[in-house]
Simulated assay, not measured.
Amino acid sequence: MSKSSIRKEYFWKYYLEWMKTYKDGAVADCTYKKYVSTQGWIRKLLLNTTVGALDRGKYQKMINQYAKYHEKQTTTDFHHQVKACVRDMLYEGYIDRDPTWNVVVKGKPHKKKHEKFLQVDEYKKLIQNLDLSHPIDWNWAILLIAKTGLRFAEMLAITPADFDFKRRCLTVDKTWDYRSPIGGFKKTKTITSNRAISLDWQILGMFKPQIENLPKDEPIFVKKCEAGHYKRVFNATLNQRLFTLCKQQGISHISIHGLRHTHASVLLANGVSINAISERLGHANVSITQEVYAHVLDELRVKDDQKIMAVMMEVS
């Protein structure tokens, strides 16, 4: 198509073709679904706007309308997905100016959702009362998450080959596609999610006899049925197991993701640096860790202030 023809094409149609050409198969399925959602909103908010007619005013109004129904971070993500297409349009010469320049991103107030986590004594009680007398089962999975802070999909993808008993660490370089009926290994959430997590000698000693006779490259927590297919695993199953354990032991009820938070909170409370914890959790950057654990950091700052005052009193 000529440039003049493309300039007359509806922007939502152009975005649809752009999305299929540059994103389909190049990004994770969950990410592509977000592009599909973005395209739907563009069609809704800029139905009769052509490529050539897209200017800063129309773009800003679209962002403002989207922001009425979404939080600022979600609106920012939407803006970035649209802007990627617009920048390509500018590069190709279909538009003369960048309509996304200096856009103001708004959004609904952020609802803070602090995932519940266990106190240190509850955390210890949970681990100490796990029934590990059976071969690898969900109790072992709960133990591993409690000791490493693994994400659910990362835990499911762990194989015997991922345990390095000499270096005393666990390699995380894949996840398990538990949302798919057939399962299978997938890439990690981000590049920084690929990491080696240090393990204490005690947990290594506990896992070694459990996994030494298992297939080296098969997931230890996902079983196969008689037909040779992997059995479907659901997040809710493990959450229910953890809920039952918490209830039996009289401690706070948390989810598996809450157990990941507990792992990080315990490390923070014991003086481990935010940078080290961020790397251990596989966060894309430290700011994410700081945002997620702001409530814990605030508590630690209060304690630090008290220590500072005590030191100043001693030297006065």
Rank of each mutant, 00 (worst) to 15 (best):
K72S: 04
G25I: 02
L245K: 06
V103H: 06
A227M: 00
K72V: 05
L214A: 04
H263T: 06
G183S: 06
F152H: 07
M312I: 01
D164E: 04
C169G: 13
T188P: 15
K108Y: 01
S255A: 10
N235E: 03
I42C: 13
S133L: 12
G52F: 07
L156N: 08
G258P: 04
T192L: 15
A161T: 11
C85K: 09
K112H: 08
A310W: 01
L90A: 12
K303Q: 07
A236H: 14
D131L: 09
L281K: 11
R97E: 02
S2P: 13
K124F: 06
Y178C: 06
G205P: 07
T175S: 14
D131A: 04
T75E: 07
K106A: 01
D96G: 09
M312E: 05
K3H: 08
P99C: 10
Q128A: 08
L118Y: 05
A196V: 07
K116P: 09
D96M: 11
W140N: 15
K108N: 03
K189E: 11
T21G: 08
T192I: 14
V105N: 00
K147W: 11
G271K: 01
I277Q: 10
Y14G: 07
W12F: 10
I203Q: 02
S180K: 04
G205F: 15
G57M: 12
Y66V: 01
K187S: 09
L130I: 07
T100H: 07
T171M: 14
L268R: 00
N213P: 12
H295R: 01
W18Q: 10
D298F: 15
L238S: 12
K303H: 14
L214Q: 03
K111D: 01
K108V: 10
Y35V: 00
L118R: 01
R232C: 13
Q39I: 00
A284Y: 04
Q210A: 07
L281M: 14
A161V: 09
D304G: 04
K83Q: 06
T21H: 08
K23D: 09
S37C: 02
N213Q: 08
G25H: 06
T192N: 15
H80L: 01
L214V: 04
H114I: 03
W18F: 07
G205I: 05
M62L: 06
I142R: 03
T31C: 03
I95G: 15
T148Y: 12
D131M: 10
D162E: 13
R151T: 14
F117L: 05
K44F: 12
W140F: 13
G228F: 01
K189D: 06
F163G: 14
E218F: 01
D98S: 05
G40V: 00
K147C: 05
V222A: 04
N235I: 05
Y14F: 08
P215I: 00
